[in-house]
Design a protein around this nucleic acid. Structure first.
Length: 628
DNA sequence: CTTAGGG
DNA sequence: CCCTAAG
């Protein structure tokens, strides 16, 4: 992947060189190819980008006083933005209801409103041709450009009064939403097979969408992260997102998505049966997390690995959240049901039980720093209590015990004391302080119980309380919508179980083994009988008619596709051409191999003849033309 | 969807 | 077996 990308940098994608004889293969445009990989824009990408934008604005505004329309308080919002409010007000997120709803029925709106009155707006669309652009928004006396971004799940203006607010509600957005191009910036939203597909492009340089954690190519002004399986070429969509052209360009890829997605969904369904608690997160091949299919994290069962999910909304505005697997699952489940795919950075950290708290901090910090830049202090929480003794080992703090790892948490504290601390306790004791409904949604041991959709997660403004960890507030209420950010701590991080082993940060780019979502078919060696059947069919039909071969000799063997037969023939030819000593597996009778070679020669000749005929015919035409 | 060919 | 290009 890396290589590929690098090659692309030269403006030419070597990987797109046509394969041998198929000289007529079309070359795929490099951009398309590249986008293929990276196009998967995510809700959080957008958040991230917006954050970057905001940062820039804040930087300029902080030096030039308020440039946001003269309202100083607006600026305060930005600079002091320390509150995240996650709010759900309708019950669509209820497990049961959700399950019974088709994606198009699930409409969720979430709004991110920052401290500069930028609104990130997401609106689920059933119409795949919907496109969204950045557009100016005249609100709150804001004169600066305000981004309105539609990425599929709906961010709606919330009542930002004192900071950053993410309000997650569920409602239908006006479908007549109009997109406006601004300075060439363009944001595209369309429905894919999974109903949501997001692309975007910010021509505005302040938007720096790409970040590669694994490669340490991290742009401070944005975050996002890693792109696994690409979905659709993005470039084409930029050209004209609303024309058939775009859809056409996507056609091919979408088709390819079909089988995969369908199958994947089937797998997911199976998964869900297995895990009746709900959805879980899985890490896709790209190392990021995809909510497309939320399944068991591969981390599970992998020893010595801590998994830390970082949701970097606006770290530059003081917001950094780190989630454990469990917590993240909850959040995912709660928030992004309609966000079909976004990826977040994920850190896998391996630590032995003999490691000290200090080393754990360093490890985490290293990882976090890679993502967020430096100047961050890491705190370690066990059972919600800060472990201050850096010299104590994890074992001593009980952290080598699997169960306790569920209660491991981290605090992220900016190095500078005037900055807020982010903290989010994870143990059930703290959780029990929640409001009446007290759904254990964030209990890492049962992270998927956001059945009560009416919940509010408040991560209050942090007034650094360096003395004690202030429990974060997670309120899950049945009906209340108003929640006051009463906590002064921010941050969070329950951590999934692990078996400490080594101390290392596993590079994200390291491709995880196949999840069962992309399981290889089990190998099913051809029997001699099958080979016989295959040889016989090829003798009659020749090579190049694999579908016919399949129908004729393997019509009822659904596990043998024509591609399989073609492949088998290929290997048979190879097998026949090598010495018996070099052959492996169940021996194929020499008689059959002889027939294979004979048929191979025959049909090869046949093909040559055909080509020769064509060639001759063509030559004739040319010559006759020349003589005319 | 099929075919061809590389991995 | 998988993946992908290309017809």
């Amino acid at each position: 992947m890396v290589v590929k990308r690098r090659l692309n940098c030269g403006g030419f994608d070597f990987s797109s060189i046509p394969k041998a004889p198929r000289s007529t293969r079309r070359k795929v445009s490099t951009t398309e190819r590249d986008d293929d990989v990276d196009s998967h824009i995510t809700a959080f990408d957008l958040l991230a980008s917006l954050a970057g934008k905001l940062l820039e604005e804040s930087e300029s505004s902080s030096s030039t006083s308020s440039t946001y329309g003269g309202d100083d308080s607006q600026e305060d919002h930005l600079l002091a933005g320390k509150m995240i409010k996650l709010e759900q007000v309708e019950d669509v997120y209820n497990n049961n209801k959700l399950a019974s709803k088709s994606p198009s029925e699930i409409t969720s709106e979430t709004s991110l409103r920052i401290p500069s009155d930028c609104v990130l707006e997401q609106t689920p669309v059933s119409d795949c041709k919907r496109a969204l652009d950045l557009k100016p928004l005249e609100s709150g006396g804001i004169t600066e450009e305000t981004g309105v971004v539609n990425v599929g799940a709906g961010f709606e203006q919330g009542e930002a009064t004192n900071g950053l607010m993410i309000t997650d509600t569920i409602s239908l957005k006006d479908p007549s939403h109009e997109s406006v191009h601004r300075d060439g910036s363009k944001l595209v939203c369309r429905d894919d097979d999974e109903n949501y597909c997001k692309y975007y492009k910010f021509s505005d340089k302040s938007y720096r969408p790409m970040t590669r954690v694994g490669h340490r190519r991290i742009t401070k002004k944005s975050m996002v992260i890693k792109y696994g399986r690409a979905v659709v070429p993005r470039s084409k969509c930029f050209k004209d997102t609303r024309t058939d052209g775009c859809l056409k360009a996507l056609y091919r890829k979408r088709k390819l998505c079909y089988g995969y997605n369908q199958w994947k969904h089937e797998s997911v369904r199976r998964k869900r049966r297995l895990c009746d608690k709900g959805w879980v997160v899985y890490s896709d091949g790209g190392g990021g997390l995809s909510s497309e299919s939320v399944t068991n994290s591969p981390v599970k069962g992998e020893s010595g690995t801590l998994s830390v999910y970082i949701l970097m909304l606006c770290y530059l505005t003081g917001l950094v959240l780190i989630f454990s697997h469990a917590m993240w699952c909850s959040l995912l489940f709660a928030v992004k049901l309609s966000i079909k795919s976004f990826r977040i950075p994920e850190l896998f950290i391996e630590v032995p039980g003999t490691a000290t708290v200090g080393s754990l901090k360093r490890t985490v910090m290293e990882a976090v720093t890679a993502l967020l830049g430096d100047g961050i202090r890491i705190g370690v929480l066990v059972q919600g209590k800060k472990v201050r003794d850096d010299k104590s080992t994890l074992s001593q703090t009980g952290l080598s015990c699997r169960e306790n790892l569920d209660n491991l948490g981290f605090t992220l504290e900016p190095g500078s004391s005037e900055n807020p601390v982010i903290s989010m306790p994870t143990d059930s004791t703290n959780l029990s302080e929640r409001s009446a409904a007290s759904s254990p949604a964030l209990d890492s041991r049962s992270p998927f119980l956001l059945q009560d959709a009416h919940h509010v997660i408040n991560i209050g403004t942090c007034v650094e309380n360096s003395q004690e960890l202030v429990p974060y507030q997670i309120d899950i209420t049945a009906d209340e919508r108003q929640q006051q950010p009463s906590s002064d701590s921010r941050a969070i991080v329950p951590v999934p179980p692990m078996e400490p082993d080594a101390l290392a940060i596993v590079p994200l780019k390291e491709k995880p083994k196949r999840t069962e979502l992309s399981q290889r078919r089990t190998r099913r060696p051809f029997s001699v009988t099958e080979v016989e059947s295959l040889v016989h069919a090829v003798e009659e039909l020749g090579t190049g008619r694999w579908r016919d071969v399949k129908l004729r000799s393997f019509g009822d063997a659904s596990h043998r596709t024509y591609v399989d037969l073609k492949d088998k023939w290929k290997t048979l030819v190879h097998t026949a051409s090598i010495s018996p000593q070099q052959r492996r597996g169940e021996p194929v009778p020499q008689e059959l191999l002889d027939r294979v070679l004979a048929a191979h020669r025959h049909w090869s000749q046949h093909q040559v003849k055909q080509n020769g005929k064509h060639q001759a015919a063509a030559t004739m035409v040319v010559e006759s033309g020349a003589f005319m």
